[in-house]
Each structure stands twice: as structure tokens, then as C-alpha cells.
Amino acid sequence: MSVELNHTIVHARNNRESAEFLAEILDLEVGAEWGPFIPVSTSNGVTLDFASVPAGSIARQHYAFLVADDEFDAAYARIQRAGIAYYADPGLKHPGEINHHHGGRGLYFLDPAGHGMEILTRPYGSPTSNTPASETSAR
């Protein structure tokens, strides 16, 4: 059997709020609450299990989501409509901009718990091309 990431736990101040926030931006479904977790599954089968923890115990993490161009456009529109601050860089020094790394587009935003979320249309290290994200292999 090959090794695949199955799920990861995402600490949140409010697990429902954080799960619904990400699901809304990425047009994903929020799963049924399971114990202390609120799951959000991605199309490649990885589940983000949001768990409420005390705010002081949340260490900022980074989560990057590879999306197709049309999915980027839709997520970007939802981010703009909601008035969510977004940036071209992970250091949050270029507000209101997107980047064009690897021949694609990307942006960063924070979730309600302060985690850095990224959407990108080309994986890091991709040759500069117009190949859709769905036709490239993620690293």
C-alpha cells in the first residue's frame, strides 16, 4: 500500500466556525460532527478534522490547497465578497494581491483561528505553463 495522508487535526477556537469558514471558501461539505471533531473532506480524500481547543494553545499552521483555475476564481470571488483580507505572500506583506508563481495563481488568507490558508493553481516547482492544476501532479 502506498502512503497517503488520510486526515489531520486542525485546532480552532470554535471548530464549527472554522470548518464552515473553510468549507464556504473552497465550496466543500462540512461532515457530521464526530466526537470532538467537525470534518471537512477534500476531493483527494484528505479530511481536515477541526477540534476546539483553548485559544492560547493554538499554534499557527499553514494549509495549502491545490485548485483548478475555475475553482480559484470561485474561491477568490467568495473571499472578496466576504471582505476577507488576502495576500500574495505567506508573510502577509502584499495585501490585496495574488501571486503568479509557477505559471499559476495563488493567494493567502487567515482562517478564524489564525491559521494561514493558501489556494494555488500550480504546485510548487511546476514548470511555467498553462497546464490546468487538475492535469499536474502535486508534490
Rank of each mutant, 00 (worst) to 15 (best):
D70V: 00
D73E: 09
I119P: 02
G103N: 08
A23W: 02
S126K: 08
G31F: 07
G35L: 12
N99C: 09
R16H: 15
I38T: 09
G103T: 08
Y124L: 15
T128W: 14
R16C: 07
E97K: 12
D73C: 04
A64E: 01
A19S: 06
G106Y: 00
S57Y: 12
S57N: 14
D111K: 02
L48V: 04
Y63K: 01
L22S: 05
R139C: 13
R16G: 03
E135A: 09
P112V: 06
A85V: 08
G35A: 12
H115L: 07
A19R: 05
A85T: 11
V3W: 10
F109P: 03
E17A: 10
R60Q: 03
A51R: 13
N15R: 10
N99Y: 03
Y124G: 14
L22G: 04
G45L: 08
R105K: 14
G116E: 11
V67K: 04
V30E: 05
H101I: 11
F72I: 06
P39T: 09
R60S: 00
R105Y: 07
I9H: 11
T42F: 15
V40S: 06
P127T: 12
T121L: 10
A32P: 07
E135K: 06
E33I: 15
S41R: 11
A64L: 00
A77I: 01
G116V: 12
I79R: 06
V46D: 06
L66S: 01
I38G: 02
P54S: 04
G114T: 09
L26K: 04
S43A: 12
T131Y: 13
I9C: 11
E20A: 06
G56F: 08
Y108E: 06
A77P: 03
A88E: 00
T128I: 15
L26W: 04
L26P: 01
A19V: 00
A77N: 06
S52T: 13
A51F: 14
A88I: 01
V10H: 00
D73N: 10
P127W: 13
L26Q: 04
T128V: 15
E24V: 02
S57M: 13
L110C: 03
I98R: 00
A82T: 08
G96S: 02
P132Q: 08
E118H: 03
A113E: 02
Q80T: 11
I58G: 05
Q61A: 12
P54K: 07
A59M: 10
L110H: 12
G83D: 06
H7W: 15
D73W: 08
G125F: 07
Y124T: 13
F50P: 01
E135Q: 08
E29Y: 11
K93I: 09
D73K: 04
M1G: 15
E17D: 12
L28N: 03
L48Q: 02
D70G: 00
G103D: 06
F72T: 05
E71Y: 04
V30S: 00
E17G: 01
I38K: 05
L48A: 13
I84V: 12
D69P: 01
W34S: 11
A88R: 02
R60P: 06
